[in-house]
Design a protein around this nucleic acid. Structure first.
Lengths: 208, 208
DNA sequence: GGTAAACTTGATCGAACGACAAACAACTAC
DNA sequence: GTAGTTGTTTGTCGTTCGATCAAGTTTACC
């Protein structure tokens, strides 16, 4: 009972990728079903049949986004040998992604739906949770640095440092959106990394 | 010919403040004319008669926002005696504003319309210009520190530092939106200021 | 071939969108 | 009082929103 009935005339993965492009450019509320149908090359009915509601489609789009554009920064955190190198590489990978030619110059996770109509509260909170995962991932990487022995900082300091670099990542997205070049972002990252030695050597400064 | 005809039954300043609250909470596209009319206590026709279009109203709202919520950070930059104190106070004033009880926990300038439908491109660019003014204001304050003698950094370094602290300000807004407390923000600011001494003592690090 | 199942299309649903215009109300100038 | 001016209200304009449905099409199964 796998392939009975008329087969799809479009590839759902391709269509999802096309939907991603539209949501990425216009945000959640700025994208209409008509926009999506046009970009995906199918009628709106086919969207609902294959992907469910607009919100369902958006959640699937965000999953795809996470495994594509979200992967390089995550891999940087994972594969770099020290916590410092991991954070630095993660920032640079983020800068690479949000200045990539052919795609909007910002992180979709951050800017696709920060505010909006009351009826889309669930979508905003969905993205907020994903952003919280970003903070957690960074925090875990710092903790790994402590157990690996390449980072010495008090537990309370780890939280602050993780939050700080999450803030930088999110700020970079606004900068890129407003026209900052890859070179501009590199300079910002250099500034942000200038705090590292101070933060990891004088822990008394960062107890909040 | 000042006061001919029927006088207004509402105070435009009060109505503008009420419109600000709605735009602040729901963003530009997430706010409908109906939402505004309801919050302002007048019919939609009166909005168009007094303020023009939705976009015109939004621009007037942003002017009000700039002179109210935007003033404390700007004053901090202006009145603190040194560049370092100015930046630090500006960050803390920003944190105060975006965690103020009774108002949304983010900067409207940053999150009211970062993305959206194509027909609202002008609104997004309007906000982008205001954000660029933020960068310019910070840059000018750093330059003043150089002429005042309390800051030594190469000209290229000033741009990078200004961009860096602008990035932090904008990142703070996302953090507050996602539930960070005033204490959380303070810890982030402490981290961000930890970069200051390095940035202003070893200028070779920040040439972009 | 016949039937059931899966998919696509095109039309359309009620509601909401931004914007506007005519009718009415309230004031000043004379 | 009367005319002229301005603000408010009510209703509605044409469009678009997200979502759904019936009808038609294309396949697998028997």
């Amino acid at each position: 009972m796998a392939t009975r009935g008329r087969p799809r005339t479009f590839d759902p993965d391709t269509a999802l990728r096309q939907a991603l492009d539209v949501f990425w450019e216009r945000g959640y509320e700025g994208t209409s079903i008509n926009d999506l149908a046009e970009a995906m090359g199918i009628a709106s009915g086919s969207i609902y049949a294959c992907f469910g509601s607009k919100e369902d489609l958006f959640r699937k789009v965000m999953a795809l986004y996470g495994t594509t554009s979200g992967e390089p920064p995550r891999r940087a955190l994972r594969e770099q040998p020290t916590a410092r190198a991991a954070i630095h590489a993660m920032l640079r990978a983020t800068a690479d992604e949000i200045t990539r030619p052919g795609t909007p110059h910002y992180c979709m996770l951050i800017l696709a739906a920060p505010t909006g109509a009351v009826e889309n509260h669930a979508v905003r909170e969905f993205l907020a949770e994903l952003r919280h995962d970003m903070l957690t991932t960074i925090k875990d990487r710092l903790a790994r640095g402590v157990t690996d022995g390449d980072l010495t900082a008090p537990p309370a300091g780890l939280d602050a440092i993780a939050r700080y670099y999450t803030t930088v990542v999110q700020g970079l997205s606004i900068q890129a959106r407003d026209g900052a070049t890859r070179i501009d972002l590199e300079a910002i990252i250099t500034c942000a990394m200038a705090a590292w030695d101070t933060l990891t050597s004088t822990p008394s400064h960062i107890s909040g």
